[in-house]
Amino acid sequence: MATAAQRRIKSVSYAKYGYIFTAPFFIVYFIFMLFPLLTTFKLSVYGNGLSAKLDQAGTSINCFVGMDNFKTILTGGTDYKSMGIHENFVKFFGNTIIIWVGNFIPQICLSLLLAVWFTDLRVKMPGKGFFKVVMYMPNIITAASVAGLFLSLCGDSKYSVLNSFLLNHGFLDEAYMFASNKWSSRIIVMFIQVWMWFGNTMIMLMSGIQGINESLFEAAEIDGANSRQTFWRITFPLLKSIMVYTLLTSMIGGLQMFDIPFMFHTGNVINSHLETIAIFIYDYFHRDYLHPSYGYSAAASVILFVITSILGALVFYVQRDKDAIEIKKKRKAAAKEAKRRAARGGGFSI
């Protein structure tokens, strides 16, 4: 039998502290994340331009224009403005995909290889901790510094490290425009992305590998499996979920790629082979600050959001655990069967 005091304590609700402690997050989230998110959706169906003159034409930021912004971006039009916007979007989207694919594939391969080596029981690598830190390091340098660094290493200038090496050793007669030419600039940006992010991906994959039960590896070793067999039969299948996660985060990050492509150029003109969707959004929203085109910017953001969602869903669909689904299906079928029998009034089947 509980005493009165005990009963009183029981009735004290601690739930409100939970709400109080989590409130800051929600407040910040609502103000700085949810509100801008919803505003983006709203802006995407409103017009562009701020001037009162345009108000009458029905295209200012105060006017609801429905899907016009999307139409212009996706299909273009007959006037130069629409053509320009549409072409830029398509071109920048292409650039984004090319640069992302070009950096993701080498990045995941390199990270996977290093992660396996670092976690392999048989590889007794000295200075593992040191290498892990060194490989993660590029990730903590700000993008602006990285872009500056690479511009002085392999920029257009004949005084850049790569050019002066090639010129001094007679490989070239004149400076090569590494930062301006189509493929050299893209390859450099891909390389920078790999260099900056492979350490991060490697750490993630390592944590995935370390999560795999060690006895599986020991058993494989006892059974005489070689490294390759261990990797393909044990490590890789069990790493699937973390790979999906890496793929997804990298894809989201890749589609939003902005800093390095935006900064890796000489002079005032951004290299058009490097311009990405995020640069498109920035361009229309910010560069001409007195006449911002919020509508196009927001519409492009929404399109990017939709594309990301579709790709994300696709990744989940492809990577789904088929065996588990099969088992689930069977279980469901069995349950149905049992129900059907019960309904028929049958007893236990023997």
Partner: peptide
């Protein structure tokens, strides 16, 4: 990056299209 003068002008017009108030 742009192959000839005509293509350049075409691109110039498209770029200028987004300048508010300017008729292209």
């Amino acid at each position: 990056e742009i192959k000839d003068y005509d293509a350049m002008i075409e691109q110039f017009k498209k770029d200028c299209g987004s300048i508010e108030g300017l008729v292209v």
